[in-house]
Simulated scan of single mutants.
Amino acid sequence: MHRRTFISAVTTGGAVAVVGSLWQATATATGADDGPYGPLLPADGNNLALPEGFTSRIIARSAQEIGGTRWHPAPDGGACFSDEDGWIYVSNSEIPLAGGVTAIRFTAEGAIDGAYPILRGSNLNCAGGATPWNTWLSCEEIFRGKVYETDPYGKDDAAERPAMGRFKHEAAACDPDNQVIYLTEDESDGCFYRFTPETWGDLSSGRLEVLCGNMESVTWKEIPNPAPGVLETQTRHQVADAVHFNGGEGCHYADATCYFTAKGDRRVWAYDTRSASVTSIYDGDGTLDGVDNITGTAAGDLYVAEDGGNMEINIITADGVVAPVLRVEGHEESEITGPAFSPDGTRLYFSSQRGTSGSSSDGVTFEVTGPFRH
């Protein structure tokens, strides 16, 4: 049974706290109702179970041509960017040694108007994040992984950003209010980082810090050596009182709060920049399992994709309701990756990384259109 679940925001010390002005109410009861879009219907011809009023299409398959280029294997993190009268969706490729990023351009009507690589030859590009100056940060999920700044429009060459640290990167979220970028680390004892550029909009230099202290009152301390060598102390172990999270995954910034997930913890965390505190807004006790990539809308809703679980994307509403908004059926050995909304909020893009076969060469990228709250 897929039920709606209400969540409460609690700190690790047990005190109740509401994080960010997006979160105006909490509750601890459960109910049999569904989420704001209603129950999921039987799967459509694309193996997607969707609510009433939503439709889907497959826009790309690994190893098949799309818009003049071959779609990459193991599609992972992604984002959308406005482009004149249309938009662009970018997607990472999480394969070793031959990873990278591919972009798809859409017309104002949603037709595919070309595709092209914007990064080649990198290594296990997992998630990342969009910047306010319309670049895509593509992150390598490997030992001493790099962050690449790429151009969704295909005009400028990708650039390495070593000042952002060499570690097992997962995702990035830009905070334009404080002019910093938050970074997650996919290790069982991974950390949560903050990068402050010397000049906002230029990521070639800056200061990398790690979250420290206790959850009720956190501090940030500088990483002494952001790009350690193979035999040197890695970033997550350089500061003694750094806070560790089990398997950092996606992150999303909105309204003075950075939301980030930790798959091993089975939690969605929230760092409130105003109170300098961290709370858990979802603790794994509900319909959402395998918390992974995360995105959000201007309406205040969060959308969290599952790695495993029952292959759903769940909504977490501003009033604390957790419910599935779609489910991919018949892809049991895959994971959902790269959720991102079109600029107008009416279309949701995401991938099943390994499709029905469980192979990285069988990735499928979807578009869902419908009355999303935006």
Rank of each mutant, 00 (worst) to 15 (best):
T5I: 15
T5Q: 14
A9H: 15
T12R: 14
G13N: 15
G20S: 03
L22V: 06
Q24E: 15
G31A: 15
Y37A: 04
A43R: 14
D44A: 11
A49Y: 13
A49K: 14
T55K: 12
E65L: 13
I66E: 05
P73C: 04
A74Y: 02
E84P: 02
W87D: 03
Y89F: 04
V90H: 00
S93P: 01
V101W: 03
R105P: 02
T107S: 08
E109I: 02
Y116C: 01
N123L: 15
C126F: 06
G128Q: 06
W136I: 05
E141S: 05
G145D: 05
G145H: 04
D157S: 15
A158Q: 03
R161I: 01
M164Y: 00
H169L: 02
H169K: 07
P176S: 09
Q179E: 10
T184K: 07
E187A: 09
S188D: 14
D189M: 03
W200N: 02
S205M: 05
E209R: 00
V210Y: 00
W220K: 00
A227L: 04
P228Q: 03
T233E: 14
D241I: 05
A242R: 10
V243W: 04
N246Y: 14
G248I: 04
A256S: 06
T257R: 04
G264K: 02
R266V: 02
W269L: 12
S277K: 08
T279C: 14
S280W: 09
S280A: 13
D285T: 14
T287A: 15
T287I: 13
D289E: 15
T295A: 05
V304F: 06
D307K: 06
G308C: 10
I315A: 11
D319H: 11
G320L: 09
V322T: 09
V322N: 04
E329A: 09
S334Q: 01
E335N: 03
G338C: 08
F350H: 10
S351G: 07
R354M: 00
S360G: 07
S361P: 01
T365E: 06
